[in-house]
Amino acid sequence: EFTQISGYVNAFGSQRGSVLTVKVENDEGWTLVEEDFDRADYGSDPEFVAEVSSYLKRNGGIKDLTKVL
């Protein structure tokens, strides 16, 4: 089950073990991109978060400006 990723309007994530599946949706709710990120592939949590965040930004993730990150 996908849940909204904090700080984004149209990005959602689903966690299974160490694998986080993220997706970005358009205004109609269609999935634009979907990608798996395995936490085990990264040396640290900040590196993992930075990679996921960068992916979302590159692929149309819209920041939720009503929330302070």
Rank of each mutant, 00 (worst) to 15 (best):
E1P: 11
E1Q: 12
E1I: 14
F2C: 09
F2N: 04
T3W: 12
T3H: 11
T3E: 10
T3Y: 14
Q4D: 04
Q4S: 08
Q4L: 15
I5V: 05
I5H: 06
I5C: 12
G7I: 08
G7M: 07
G7Q: 05
G7L: 06
Y8D: 03
V9H: 08
N10Q: 04
F12D: 02
F12V: 06
F12L: 04
F12K: 06
G13N: 04
G13F: 13
S14M: 12
S14D: 03
S14Q: 11
Q15P: 05
R16K: 11
R16C: 14
R16V: 09
G17R: 01
G17D: 04
G17H: 03
G17Y: 03
S18R: 05
S18C: 12
V19S: 02
V19W: 03
L20I: 07
L20C: 15
T21I: 07
T21Y: 05
T21D: 01
T21L: 04
V22I: 10
V22W: 01
K23G: 01
V24G: 00
V24L: 08
V24S: 00
E25Y: 15
N26T: 12
N26D: 11
D27Q: 11
D27A: 14
D27G: 10
D27C: 15
E28L: 10
E28D: 11
E28R: 09
E28A: 08
E28H: 11
E28F: 10
G29V: 04
W30G: 10
W30K: 15
W30P: 03
W30V: 14
T31I: 13
T31M: 06
T31P: 07
T31Q: 05
T31N: 05
T31G: 06
L32P: 04
L32M: 13
V33N: 09
V33R: 06
V33W: 13
E34N: 05
E34W: 12
E34G: 03
E35P: 01
E35Y: 12
E35C: 15
D36M: 10
D36A: 11
D36L: 09
F37R: 00
F37W: 01
F37V: 00
F37C: 03
D38V: 02
D38S: 02
R39T: 03
R39V: 02
R39C: 07
R39M: 06
A40V: 08
A40Q: 07
A40D: 09
A40P: 00
D41N: 12
D41E: 07
D41W: 08
D41K: 10
D41V: 07
D41P: 02
Y42C: 04
Y42M: 02
Y42W: 06
G43S: 12
S44C: 06
S44E: 03
S44W: 03
S44N: 06
D45N: 06
P46V: 14
P46S: 14
P46L: 15
P46C: 15
E47H: 05
E47M: 06
F48C: 05
F48E: 01
V49G: 05
A50C: 13
A50P: 00
A50V: 06
A50I: 06
A50D: 08
E51K: 10
E51M: 12
V52P: 01
V52H: 00
S54F: 09
S54G: 09
Y55Q: 01
Y55P: 01
Y55E: 01
Y55C: 05
Y55A: 02
L56C: 06
L56W: 00
L56G: 00
L56D: 02
L56K: 01
K57E: 15
K57N: 14
K57V: 10
R58P: 03
R58N: 13
R58H: 09
N59K: 05
N59A: 07
N59P: 02
N59I: 06
N59T: 03
G60P: 01
G61T: 06
G61F: 05
G61V: 13
G61R: 02
I62M: 07
D64C: 14
D64N: 07
D64E: 10
D64Q: 06
L65S: 13
L65A: 11
L65I: 12
T66Y: 12
T66F: 10
K67C: 15
K67R: 06
K67A: 14
V68E: 15
V68M: 08
V68F: 12
V68T: 10
L69W: 08
L69M: 09
